[in-house]
Structure formats: structure tokens, C-alpha cells
Design a protein around this nucleic acid. Structure first.
Lengths: 156, 156
DNA sequence: TGACAATAGTCGTTTTAACGACTATATTAG
DNA sequence: CTAATATAGTCGTTAAAACGACTATTGTCA
């Protein structure tokens, strides 16, 4: 991957700005990490957004969340949550019930099956993250987190 | 965005590990930056992968590249390059010609139209990156790049 | 109260991505 | 030289994501 990026640099030309270099690096590194997670999910037939929704719902358990709340925590648009939820419900990983107080909202909860699925993934995820990032050491990790949060404050 | 992330942390629980925190931060920050680029592309009806392919081809100009070479530099699988190229060719942004020496390969080149489209985007992209990342300053930017490359060496 | 606006969620459609199977050409080994 | 294997690219199908329009319910205010 690094070799690939270097090859590309050589081939085109050095980055126009340091910012451009950081930008591309950030995207590529995130992509590499992302693929690691994706690989763990695939055997369980779970897409990354589905996994994220389940985690969000686990965080709210034993309470539930409205579609809108899930969409907010997720980085996606509302309209697509519905069908994503459809698939999760169909697999028995979540349940949905119309709220009695405000009959517009539908409260979604994670089921025991859903929780078990997540639990299965917890350790592998942590191990993968440890392998991908642990070599930096606590000090550099903290600094990296710090930098990223700063960037997101400006860019997000 | 930051507020959103903090809210999520509060709601679930602090991250299990520092690595997990860095992992999520990296993904979210990359997503934020990515959306910035996407927004610049949308008015021109160009998807991020299409943009990347055009940039790769510009780097190779006046030469061309085989599908496989483009796929290598891109982070995507081969099979999908074909149709992506189809759309670019249909819009006159690239041309394709079967190689005479090895008749299996198809050499793809960027057209003047394609180059002009890219040129239109160069300045806005740099400006966006400057706005998103410039506030860090050269020193921190270099360090960030350094950290990211280290991570990618291990994770990519 | 009754009209109007806002909000929650769903649905229809189009575009992209993902995965696997398939064709054509080239390379290699016996 | 031929059979087997590898490589380049394409195609078919299914699954997701993107975008907009639509329905139902609630809230607001004249």
C-alpha cells in the first residue's frame, strides 16, 4: 500500500501542497483500516453500516432509538436507514415498535440475537485494532487522536 | 461532528482501548474530509472513484494505462473498473484502444476534455484541503503524515 | 378551531458497488 | 507443438447507497 502510494507520487509529481499530501494519506490510511474491519464483518454477512447501527443500538440498550436518532449518530442520510433496518429486522437482530406517545416515531431495539452477534465480534475487532495501531504506542496514539479531533473540528 | 462523536461516547461508554478510539477517530475524520471533496465533485456529476481514475490517467499522460494498472493504483477491484470506464468514455473524458502487442489489454487515455475538467477542479480542491488542514501548520502536518504512513505500513 | 408548517418514516427510481462466472489472448511446461 | 495455466477484461446478477417525492402524525399560531 505504501509502496503503491509512493509509486503514484513518483509517477505523477510530488504533492502540490502538504495539505494535499495529508489529505490523501488520511483517506488511504482510513481505507486500509476500514478494510480490516470489513473483513471481520463479511463472514457474518454484516455490512459496516449494519454493524454500526447495531453498536449504536447496543449503546442505547435496554432503551431503543428512533430512526432519526440512529441516523444522527451514523454518518448517513435518513431515507436509507429504513431499508437497512428492514434487513436487520428480517434477520431478527432488531425489533421495531411504533411509539405510543408520538405515533410518528418507530422505536428500534437490539435483540438478544443481535447482541450475541456483536459480542462475537468484540474481541476480533479489538485485536485487529491493536494489531493495526498498537505499535504506535500510547503516547503517539494520544497525539494522533488529538490531531484528528482538531482536524474534525475544522473540517467536520 | 465532534459533538456527535462525544455524544456517542457519553452514551455508550468510553472506548475500550486507545487503539479503538484512534480507529474510530481516523475513520470519522477521513469521512469528514471525504465529504468535502465529494461536494466539489457533485456539481460536475463526477463520483470520487471517477475523479481518482481521471487523476491517475492524467499522471500517466501522454501515455495510457491498462485497466489493471488503474485498478492497482485505485483502491478498488478490477471487475468494476470496466463499467466505470464505460461511463467516462461515454462522456468523452477518456478514450480506449486495444493494445496491438498484447491484444488482451486495453489502453486507456485521458482526453483534452477530461484534462480540462480536472483542471477546473484543481484549485477548489487545494483550497478545500488548505481550509480543512492548513490550520495545523506545517510541523504538525508533517508529523501527521508521518504517523499515517507508519500506520499504513502496518495495516495496509 | 382550523389552516399551515414541521417532523418521522417510508417508498420508487436510478446509480454504484460487490461478487462470481465467462471469453479471449498470452505464456509456459512437457 | 500442444495442453494446461495465467492474465486482461467483460458481463450478469444481486445488494447497497443516493436522491427525491410521498404519507401520516404532531405542533403552532392566527
Amino acid at each position: 500500500m505504501v509502496r503503491r502510494l509512493q509509486a503514484e507520487i513518483r509517477q505523477t509529481k510530488p504533492f502540490a501542497t502538504l495539505e494535499a499530501e495529508a489529505y490523501l494519506n488520511l483517506l488511504r490510511t482510513a481505507d486500509a483500516l476500514f478494510r480490516g474491519g470489513e473483513a471481520l464483518l463479511k463472514p457474518l454477512q454484516l455490512s459496516p453500516p449494519q454493524y454500526n447501527v447495531l453498536r449504536i443500538l447496543r449503546g442505547a440498550y435496554p432503551g431503543g432509538l428512533a430512526c432519526r436518532e440512529v441516523a444522527e449518530r451514523l454518518l448517513t442520510k435518513d431515507p436509507d436507514i429504513t431499508r437497512l433496518m428492514d434487513r436487520l429486522e428480517h434477520r431478527g437482530l432488531i425489533t421495531r415498535a411504533r411509539n405510543q406517545k408520538d405515533r410518528r416515531v418507530i422505536t428500534t431495539r437490539i435483540t438478544p440475537d443481535g447482541q450475541q452477534l456483536l459480542k462475537q465480534l468484540d474481541k476480533p475487532m479489538l485485536e485487529m485494532q491493536e494489531q493495526q495501531l498498537g505499535h504506535l504506542g500510547q503516547r503517539k496514539l494520544r497525539y494522533l487522536i488529538n490531531l484528528l479531533e482538531t482536524v474534525r473540528q475544522k473540517a467536520g
